[in-house]
Lab assay of single mutants.
Amino acid sequence: SSYVCVECNFLTKRYDALSEHNLKYHPGEENFKLTMVKRNNQTIFEQTIN
C-alpha cells in the first residue's frame, strides 16, 4: 500500500515516513483524515487535513 499527503502531494510506501512528514511539515496539526482508495489493484491511503 501507499500513503499520500494530499495537501503536499507527498507519496511514500511507509506509514512511519508519512508520520515523519507530518511532524516536519504539519507540526501541531491533529485533524488528519486517512481515506482508503483502491486504484489499479493498489491500496492507497490518502491523507487530508480537516
Rank of each mutant, 00 (worst) to 15 (best):
S1I: 15
S1C: 06
S1F: 01
S1P: 00
S1T: 08
S2G: 06
S2T: 13
S2R: 04
Y3S: 01
Y3M: 07
Y3P: 01
V4I: 12
V4E: 10
V4T: 12
C5V: 00
V6H: 11
V6C: 09
V6F: 08
V6R: 05
V6Q: 08
V6L: 04
E7T: 08
E7V: 09
E7F: 05
E7K: 14
E7P: 10
C8N: 00
C8K: 00
N9P: 11
F10T: 09
F10A: 02
L11C: 12
L11D: 13
L11E: 11
L11Y: 09
T12Q: 07
T12D: 10
K13C: 07
R14F: 15
R14L: 15
R14W: 14
Y15P: 07
Y15T: 11
Y15F: 07
Y15C: 00
Y15H: 02
D16L: 11
D16V: 10
D16G: 08
D16K: 14
D16S: 14
A17H: 15
A17C: 15
L18G: 01
S19F: 04
S19T: 11
S19R: 10
E20R: 06
H21L: 00
N22S: 03
L23M: 06
L23S: 11
K24L: 12
K24C: 11
Y25W: 05
Y25S: 13
Y25Q: 15
Y25H: 14
H26K: 00
H26M: 01
H26S: 00
H26Y: 00
H26L: 00
P27Q: 09
P27R: 11
G28W: 03
E29A: 10
E29I: 04
E30W: 05
E30D: 06
N31I: 06
N31M: 05
F32T: 15
F32P: 10
F32R: 05
F32S: 13
F32H: 06
K33I: 06
K33W: 03
K33Y: 01
L34V: 12
T35H: 05
T35R: 09
M36D: 14
M36R: 12
M36W: 05
V37Y: 04
V37R: 09
V37K: 10
K38I: 03
R39T: 05
N40D: 13
N40V: 05
N40Q: 07
N40C: 04
N41T: 07
N41A: 06
N41E: 12
N41P: 09
N41I: 10
Q42A: 11
Q42T: 10
T43M: 06
T43Y: 12
T43A: 14
T43E: 15
T43V: 13
I44L: 14
I44A: 10
I44N: 07
I44Q: 04
F45M: 14
E46D: 06
E46G: 02
E46K: 09
E46N: 12
Q47A: 01
T48L: 10
T48F: 06
I49P: 06
I49L: 09
I49N: 11
I49Y: 13
N50P: 07
N50F: 07
